[in-house]
Design a protein around this nucleic acid. Structure first.
Lengths: 222, 222
DNA sequence: TGAACAATGGCGCAAACGTGGTATTTAACC
DNA sequence: GGTTAAATACCACGTTTGCGCCATTGTTCA
C-alpha cells in the first residue's frame, strides 16, 4: 500500500502552472519545463484571472510560477487566491521587482520562493526541484534583503527596569483589564495595582494606560 | 584609483574567524579554510569570551563562523558584540540548532547567514564565498522556516469597516491622547470624538481604549 | 425622492483613572 | 546591622472615560 503510493509519486509528473504576461518569456519557460524529465507544464496563463477560470476543470498544480507585474490582479494579490484553490501548491514568485515592499508582501502572503527574471533558466528549473524538496529557493540578493528585514524587527529592547511583577501587570493591562480586574486576577488589592501602575508609568515615561500599551508594542517590550 | 582598490581587494586574503567549542570540528574547518585559495583562518576560538580578548590586537576578520551552543556566552548574544567590534564583518551561524527561536533570534541580531553542521564542508566554503558576494547563505530547511515566519506577520488584516476618520482618531488614541486632546488636534468637539470612539469600540468589539490599542497592534490594523 | 451612511455636536452620570501622599513587610546586599 | 528595592496596602481629589440617548448636515446611490 505504502509502496504503491511511493511508486505513484515517483512516476507522476510534477505539474507546473505558469502565470506570466510576456508571451515570449512564458513560451520559452513552458518549453524548458516540458523538456525537463519529471516536469510538465500543462497550463500557462497571461493573468491571474485567466488562471482562476481553470481551477475547477484542471488537475491541481504542484508548483505555480507567478509574475508580479501582471495586467489586472497583481501577483501579490493572486498568491492568497491561489492558496485558497490549491493549499498544497508551492508558489514561486518570478519577477523583475526586487524592492523591499514587493518581497515583503509576497512572502507574507505565503510565497514559497522568490526568483528574479535575470536568473538563468536552468536556475529556475533547479529552484522548482528545490521547493519540491522542502526548500525555499531565493535569489541571492533577495535572501540578503530578507535577512535584513529581520534586523528591523528587534531594534534594541530598551531596558526600562521593569520588575517581574510589573511586567505581569502590564500584560493584564494590555489585555484590556481594569485595575480592579487585575487585582482580582492576581489576588492583590486594587490599591496595590494602582501603586504598581504608577511605578510603571514612571519607568516608561508615560501617563496613560494607552501610552503604556503603545510603548510595549512599539518597542516590543515583554 | 578605483582600479587599485579592486586590485587590492583581489590580492588580499579573506580573513575568517572561527568560534566553535568542538576542537576536532574547529581544527578540521580551519584546515579546510586555509587550504582554500583566497581564504585564510588566522584565529579560531572555543568561546566568544576568548575571541573578544583578541579584538584589539588582531586584524579585523571579514567573516566570522559562529556556533550557538557555546560554553559561557551563547552565540546569539555574541552576534551583537561581534557586530560592535567589527561592523563590517559578516557573521555566519554554524550550528546544530534549527528550531524557530534560535533562527529568529540569530537573524534579528544581525546574522548574515545560517548554516547547519550537517552540511558538507565544501558547502560551508561555498557559503563563505556567497556571503562575500552579497548573498545570505542558508540551509535549505532554514530558508523554508524563514519564509514561513513571514506568513505569521500578516494574519489576514481583518476588515472591521472602520472609516477614514475613525482610523485617524484611532491613531491619535494610540499616541496616548485623551478625547479632549484628540478633539483639539482635529478641530472638532469633545463630543464628536466621543461618538467616533463609541463607534470604533462597537466595530472592534472592545469596550476600553486599551483594548482598542491592543487590537490594532495585535492584528496590525491601520 | 428617500434610504443609508459618515461626520458632526450635545447631555448626564456612574465608573474608572491618574496622582499626590503615607506605610508595612520581606528579601537581598554590603 | 543597616540600606535598598520590591511588593503590598490605603486614602483623597480632580479628571477622564464609557455609554445611554438624541439631533443635524451632507453625500451617495438605488
Amino acid at each position: 500500500m505504502k509502496k504503491n503510493l511511493q511508486a505513484e509519486k515517483v512516476n507522476k509528473q510534477i505539474s507546473i502552472w505558469l502565470v506570466e504576461d510576456n508571451t515570449r518569456y512564458r513560451k520559452t519557460l513552458a518549453g524548458l519545463i516540458d523538456r525537463t524529465p519529471g516536469l510538465v507544464c500543462p497550463q500557462s496563463f497571461s493573468s491571474c484571472e485567466e488562471a482562476f477560470e481553470e481551477v475547477q476543470t484542471s488537475e491541481n498544480p504542484d508548483v505555480i510560477l507567478l509574475d508580479i507585474g501582471l495586467p489586472g490582479m497583481s501577483g501579490i494579490a493572486g498568491i492568497a487566491k491561489f492558496k485558497e484553490f490549491f493549499p498544497a501548491a508551492h508558489i514561486l514568485i518570478l519577477t523583475v521587482y526586487d524592492d523591499n515592499d514587493n518581497v515583503f508582501e509576497a512572502l507574507c502572503a505565503g510565497a514559497s520562493g522568490y526568483l528574479l527574471k535575470d536568473s538563468a533558466p536552468e536556475k529556475i528549473i533547479d529552484s522548482i526541484q528545490e521547493v519540491l524538496a522542502g526548500g525555499a529557493p531565493m535569489n541571492m540578493k533577495i535572501a540578503h534583503k530578507v535577512l535584513e528585514m529581520f534586523t528591523h524587527f528587534k531594534p534594541k529592547k530598551t531596558d526600562y527596569g521593569l520588575t517581574e511583577r510589573e511586567k505581569e501587570i502590564l500584560q493584564l493591562l494590555i489585555a484590556g483589564l481594569t485595575k480592579q480586574q487585575i487585582g482580582d486576577k492576581l489576588f492583590i488589592s486594587f490599591h496595590t495595582v494602582n501603586t504598581h501602575l504608577k511605578n510603571i508609568y514612571g519607568k516608561l515615561h508615560v501617563n496613560t494606560r494607552t501610552g503604556a500599551v503603545s510603548k510595549v508594542y512599539k518597542e516590543n517590550l515583554l
